[in-house]
Design a protein around this nucleic acid. Sequence first.
DNA 1: GTGAAAGCGCTAACAC
DNA 2: GTGTTAGCGCTTTCAC
Lengths: 333, 333
Amino acid sequence: MSRQLTEKPATILDVARLARVSKSTVSNVIRGAGVIAPSTKERVRQAIDTLGYRPNLIARQMVQQRTSLIGVVIGDLANPFYSEMAKAVEWHATTRGYQVMICNTQIDERRELASLRSLLDYRVAGLIMLAYAGDAESRQLVTEARVPSVFVTCMADWGDVVSTDDEKGGRLATEHLIDLGHRRIAYVGDSSVEDAADHARAAGYRKAMTAAGLKAAIQHWRDLSLEALLTGRPRLSGVVSSNDLGAIEILDAADRLGIRVPDDLSVVGYDDIIIAGLRRISLTTIAQPKDELARSALDMLHARVTGETRGKPKRAIVECGLVVRGTTARFRS
Amino acid sequence: MSRQLTEKPATILDVARLARVSKSTVSNVIRGAGVIAPSTKERVRQAIDTLGYRPNLIARQMVQQRTSLIGVVIGDLANPFYSEMAKAVEWHATTRGYQVMICNTQIDERRELASLRSLLDYRVAGLIMLAYAGDAESRQLVTEARVPSVFVTCMADWGDVVSTDDEKGGRLATEHLIDLGHRRIAYVGDSSVEDAADHARAAGYRKAMTAAGLKAAIQHWRDLSLEALLTGRPRLSGVVSSNDLGAIEILDAADRLGIRVPDDLSVVGYDDIIIAGLRRISLTTIAQPKDELARSALDMLHARVTGETRGKPKRAIVECGLVVRGTTARFRS
DNA sequence: GTGAAAGCGCTAACAC
DNA sequence: GTGTTAGCGCTTTCAC
């Protein structure tokens, strides 16, 4: 442990010299390969210890022609849904012996492209896409590099996908409001949610509305005055938001406009981010099981990386469920 | 761009062959080194394009004996303060040409040690510590590896430090309450805040209290019944929390106990995480300028990595400030 | 201006 | 059981 502090890290050759063996022998004991005489094994161990030697992963991966790096592409780290997912992904990746490289893209095509390029330049073994802006160039880049990719909570036809059943989630949220007696219910989409997921949730909403003989009204933040939505006539009594952050903004707007939640307005979110459970927010929402999404994503990716899975993109669906809290209540005219 | 999809990524040799030059020449045009005849330069460019060639960074960094990797050690990615900081750090790192490797430690010494080991095995050029459990073995590991480290919002005497003036922050928060007429004010520390920072904030609180002739009461979550704290006699009328998340928990507890904020109780947080600004939370707090902390940290680290700075650990302080929102009000008996 | 050659730290055949 | 050897893909002298 008492290497000179002025030296550069010890190499396998330093260890070999000190232990009076060849570097292959050192390599063998490190990797537990072949059969080595207990005495030499011990000598090597000693040498490794006194030098504080640690194998250079860059060098190892260079010769092995594969890295244990996983690129994680994220929409917005400051968005709790993404950061909570990132945490779960990091955990499951580390558990399987991978190291993650996280890139934050703000769902901007240029940044996504730059991130992907950088990740591929490092020869990542695989990609976890927590957000995908859907750029054609991105697609070409990744498919040409033949790097296994799994899309979590977002979609692409050229990689594995793991998500919850978004249509079911949208339906669940809507049916909850319908069951509570609401009739005028709007759906509000958000750009921070990937398009396909947003559409699926909206489709679930529409189905539930139609099945109940109600008129669907699908809105989008992009072209929406929250005030007009909430104060228009006839009065809305329920809102389904495509994500929790949007729902919380609706809560804010309602507070500002003197609309009481849940007395005058019921709101359902989507994601179940941690803060949705705060007493001050207490948001009814559709829970996405983040740990399971991440676990599943890493299982799929790992299977691709090892070659265990090959061929056509696969798809995994994990269950979502309604969590009833304080922002929804029975309709009162 | 039309490489066979079954091939492995093109190497510099493939480009050299196609352009009918040596690989050194290709290397030179890639790196813009030396003087190359425009015609050959063009041929090489063409070859690079048709092959979709991208230099293998692993190989490059192997020969250059240094990486452009930065290890980022985080306490808890699901904690908004950390994830907001992580976002800022990622941004500033990317901007300077680094790629980040994020490790989430839950401020657990064993996980921190494992993360650090992994990061060092990848030969990261530098380390940004957003949290530091303070393990002695961690310290030895990193100092022996001679990897520049900067501690952000946490402390160690063996690396550069960038933080806000925590004592001032604690003082500001406390003085705000005193100015509002509060007399019985408690300070509540939290384990998710690094010890040194927590202590400095508590010290600021104590100074302000003492200066006003008031009695300081420093508590810690670890050994605290929130109910006892809030309902004990004589009644507390102000609380300074060492972080926003803790402050929000106090808000929750107050709501639960029927204590009105800010009418019966004023609460000040620390960090100014995004959700503190939500109308439903509207937390008065001490703002840590996250972008500036991150920028400063990366400047310091970059200067170390390039050798521009050397020698004793440096220290940078960025300003913090009070943000008054809705959880504090004038004292009424 | 361009190329030949050495070598970064390691693994993996393949000899001995 | 252990050592020799040939690279992995790149940069970097140093000749020509």
